[in-house]
């Protein structure tokens, strides 16, 4: 048989970030000194960078007890070239090509709604609010594929405390950056932008919910939601809003993008749940990204394997009804 096996790489060796950094430095140097003897492919990359200006910048991080252990990390290449970010195109390879135009600086996050007083946070201040932690999480997409991603950030609750929400705030809504002149690919679908996602307050306050600034120890590549996003590892990936510009505290459940698009397919809760099928496919199993086609299938875990930390949030709820 002609079928090759993807070599097994120990997770310690999988991080090609040094090579990434070196190459990038090499490219910068090459352009600066006007060395023209670059291959066409590399030149193309210089003029149409796959990542934003700051992506790949090293972040200072600390260890976290909330990190997931015992999983082989998905490669940086796959995490950054297999993305759902419809504002930059509906195909998985498009965000890596197109998201370079996202202006990640200057960047502010508006806080409004049921708070003591509306505020605006600058990205630089948010980066310094708490020590940045390395947190490996499983990432389960509603489309039944999964990755293991080493995110960088701190618990969303730390940020929410700074927002000083009122006791009437029951939900929190996240709005993503949207400018139709910048994200001209967004019209390839009938979705109404900006992207909106939301969590119940107690979900948002769960320490696993991560306010995220980086991955693989570096600033987030634009296609992964730079410069600031959330990661909610026990929910399907679309709940984790990218490139957040506004956070609203509300007394009612906010409208959310995919739920608006198809209520029967994408519930507001969208907890990873192998016994509640998507109407169009089973959620019992998933395809792990980066494996050979015959080795991709694996069992999907309830709450994506984070039940110990989050199951209590849904005590007494019918998760088939509130899927």
């Amino acid at each position: 048989m002609l079928i090759g096996k993807r070599p097994d790489i120990p997770s310690s060796a999988i991080t090609p970030k040094d090579q990434y950094l070196n190459r990038r430095r090499f490219l910068r140097g090459a352009v600066a000194t006007g060395v023209a003897a670059l291959g066409a492919e590399r030149l193309a990359e210089v003029f149409s960078p796959r990542t934003g200006a700051l992506a790949g910048t090293k972040l200072e991080t600390v260890k976290s007890p909330l990190t997931t252990t015992g999983e082989e990390l998905t490669s940086l290449e796959d995490i950054t070239h297999y993305n759902n970010y419809y504002e930059f195109g509906v195909n998985k390879d498009e965000p890596a090509k197109n998201a370079g135009v996202l202006p990640t600086r200057p960047w502010t996050v508006r806080v409004e709604g049921k708070v003591k007083a509306p505020k605006t946070f600058d990205i630089e201040a948010l980066l310094k609010l708490r020590p940045l932690e390395d947190r490996v999480y499983r990432h389960r997409c509603v489309e039944a594929w999964s990755m293991v991603i080493p995110w960088v950030g701190y618990s969303l609750s730390e940020f929410i405390n700074q927002c000083e929400p009122l006791s009437t705030a029951k939900y929190v809504q996240f709005l993503s950056y949207y400018d139709k002149h910048v994200e001209k690919w967004a019209s390839a679908s009938t979705i109404s932008w900006p992207y909106s996602e939301g969590l119940r307050m107690d979900e948002a306050m769960n320490p696993l919910a991560l306010l995220t600034f980086g991955l693989y120890g570096e600033v987030l590549p634009n296609q992964d939601g730079a410069p600031i996003r959330i990661v909610v590892p026990w929910k399907y990936g679309f709940k984790s809003a990218k490139s957040i510009v506004a956070v609203r505290f509300l007394d009612k459940q906010p409208p959310t993008t995919w739920n608006d698009q198809a209520q029967s397919e994408y519930g507001f809760y969208s907890n990873v749940n192998p016994i509640v099928d998507h109407p169009r496919w089973s959620q019992k199993t998933e395809r792990r990204i980066g494996k050979a086609f015959y080795a991709q299938r694996r069992t999907t875990l309830m709450f994506n394997g984070y039940g110990d930390q989050v199951a209590s949030l849904y005590k007494g709820m019918d998760l088939k009804k509130y899927f």
Binding site: G4, H81, Y82, D93, R287, I289, G290, A292, F293, Q296
Partner: peptide, 8 residues
């Protein structure tokens, strides 16, 4: 091994 991130 060039079937992309999600060969299936």
């Amino acid at each position: 091994n060039h079937l992309g991130a999600d060969p299936t």
